[in-house]
């Protein structure tokens, strides 16, 4: 078989797979049920599918995330981990699927969710001080002209001190180092006093002390009864520190307790897609479909 015919075959297979999955996901779109607050599931994701142009990032994901536990989202690069989080937070468009928080829609509870985004997504030359960024966390509690109460300011100072930014309190964020930036976002999330904390790769580009600090603060949040969801790459650390895991590779491979998810067969299934030729072919088919080549 020639190279071209392989491409063509792969293309048709992927297309078929994608179409059927979209159609079935759409047909089986479940009717939204009403859950009571205090349900054990904080987030319930049902038949979630996300497309970018004609490339499917996530296909038919069904996951339940339990309250008061630390859940890690793992998978190879480009497996749709960030897309998963962005889709449940309504930051990207869902093709199909329903996501419910505490049985409610996202809009009803969005103030109870703290999202710590990747630090590279921010313009760090923005003229704003560390204190102002942290105070943003309590925006929902601020007054008419967005004035902050004394209690909030005190809490803000405590958090800045806790995360070791006290000497930078009044300096611009452009003066912060990579680890300090992550800690700044952490303290802002703490300030929000939310129920669910979602982290998008907090351990990227940070040193050992900061990553320790992040893990410690996640544990602290868990002890307070909050739910923590985190994209993580270090599987050893996931095994050690987290309770639950969601293993993604475009499809949902497994979810549940960490020990069950991180079995050898699951990992082979997830990371096999990183095979050189396969990824190359995938890339090519993507380009051909979008009409770039």
């Amino acid at each position: 078989m020639s190279e071209k015919s392989i491409h063509r075959m792969w293309k048709t297979v992927t297309q078929l797979k994608r179409r059927t999955s979209v159609i079935t996901a759409f047909l089986e779109k479940p009717v939204k049920e009403i859950y009571e607050i205090g349900d054990e599931n904080v987030i319930k994701v049902e038949s979630l599918t996300v497309h970018y142009d004609c490339f499917a990032a996530l296909i038919d994901i069904n996951v339940e995330i339990k309250k008061g536990l630390m859940t890690a989202i793992i998978g190879p690069n480009g497996a749709g981990k960030s897309s998963f989080i962005k889709a449940i937070l309504n930051l990207t468009k869902k093709s199909t699927g329903v996501v419910s928080f505490f049985g409610n829609s996202f809009e009803q509870v969005q103030k109870k969710i703290a999202y710590v985004e990747q630090t590279k997504e921010i313009d760090w030359q923005f003229p704003i001080t560390v204190e102002e960024v942290v105070l943003m966390g309590c925006y929902s509690r601020s007054g008419l002209f967005s004035t902050y109460s004394k209690e909030d300011r005190r809490q803000c100072k405590e958090l800045i001190k806790k995360f070791g930014l006290l000497d930078k309190q009044h300096s611009l964020i452009s003066e912060l180092s990579g680890g300090q930036r992550q800690r700044l976002f952490l303290s802002r999330a703490y300030m929000q006093n939310a129920e669910v904390y979602i982290f998008d790769e907090p351990m990227a580009f940070v040193d050992y002390t900061t990553s320790e600090m992040i893990i410690e603060s996640m544990k602290e949040l868990k002890a307070l009864g909050k739910t923590v969801i985190c994209i993580h790459h270090n599987l050893d650390e996931v095994k050690k520190e987290f309770d639950e895991a969601v293993l993604l590779s475009h499809y949902l491979i497994d979810s549940g307790p960490v020990k069950k998810v991180l079995s050898k067969s699951n990992l082979i299934k997830a990371f096999r897609a990183n095979d050189f030729i396969l990824s190359e072919v995938l890339e090519l088919s993507k380009e051909m479909e979008s009409g770039n080549t």
Partner: peptide
Amino acid sequence: LITFHRRIKMFEFDKTFAGFFG
């Protein structure tokens, strides 16, 4: 500007974060 200065600041700095507060 006076009424919305904090909102504008938040929105311009971090649109994702501002989105959580509507």
